[in-house]
C-alpha cells in the first residue's frame, strides 16, 4: 500500500527556476512560494478561495495557490507575479497597462489580478468588456471600484495584440 507521509522533499519550478525544499504535506503552495522561495509577490487575502489575491499559474492555468498544497505541485511548473517583468525590470505590458490606467491603489490584490489577466489574455486575446468582467469576478479589489482594472485589461489586450505601443516608464 502507498504509505501516507507527513512531510516530503519536493522540487517545484517557479518562474523557470527549480526550488527544492522539505515541506509538511499541509503547507499550501502559497506559503511555499512565500516562505521557501522567498517570493512574496504572491499575496494571501482570505485563504479560503474567495479573494483571488493568491492567484498563480500552475502548469499554465490560473489557480488559487491557497487551495493547492505545495506537495501537489512537486515536479510541476508555477509562474508567479515575479515572473512577469523582464529580468532588467522592464514591466510586462499587462503591468504597464495597470500602471498607466491607474488600476491599483493599495495594490494588495494586484498580483492576483495580474496573473488572472495573464492567463485570460493568453486564451482570449481580444475579449469583450463583458468577458473581462466575468473573468475578474474571481478576484476581489476593495479600493478601485474595478472600473480602471477593466480598462487596464482591455488596454493590456490591445498592447499584447500589438495595436498599442507601450509608453516608456517615467516622465511626467
Amino acid at each position: 500500500m502507498v504509505i501516507p507521509v507527513e512531510t516530503a522533499t519536493i522540487t517545484v519550478t517557479v518562474d523557470g527556476r527549480p526550488y527544492t525544499a522539505t515541506v509538511e504535506a499541509r503547507k499550501t503552495l502559497a506559503d511555499f512560494l512565500r516562505e521557501e522561495c522567498g517570493l512574496t509577490g504572491t499575496h494571501l487575502g482570505c485563504e479560503h478561495g474567495v479573494c483571488g489575491a493568491c492567484t498563480v499559474l500552475l502548469n499554465d492555468s490560473a489557480v488559487r495557490s491557497c487551495l493547492t498544497f505545495a506537495i501537489q505541485a512537486d515536479g510541476q511548473e508555477v509562474m508567479t507575479v515575479e515572473g512577469l517583468a523582464a529580468p532588467d525590470g522592464t514591466l510586462h505590458p499587462i503591468q504597464q497597462a495597470f500602471w498607466e490606467n491607474h488600476a491599483l491603489q493599495c495594490a494588495f490584490c494586484t498580483s492576483g489580478f495580474l496573473m488572472t489577466t495573464y492567463a485570460f489574455l493568453k486564451e482570449n486575446p481580444n475579449p469583450s468588456e463583458e468577458e473581462i468582467r466575468e473573468t475578474l469576478t474571481g478576484n476581489i479589489c476593495r479600493c478601485t471600484g474595478y472600473q480602471n482594472i477593466v480598462a487596464a485589461v482591455a488596454d493590456a489586450a490591445a498592447r499584447l495584440r500589438g495595436e498599442k505601443h507601450t509608453q516608456p516608464v517615467g516622465g511626467v
Binding site: P4, E6, D31
Partner: peptide, 13 residues
C-alpha cells in the same frame, strides 16, 4: 500553517 496536520498519499491507481 492553516490546516491541521495530516498525512498525504498520492496513489497511482
Amino acid at each position: 500553517m492553516k490546516p491541521a496536520t495530516f498525512s498525504y498519499a498520492a496513489p497511482r491507481t
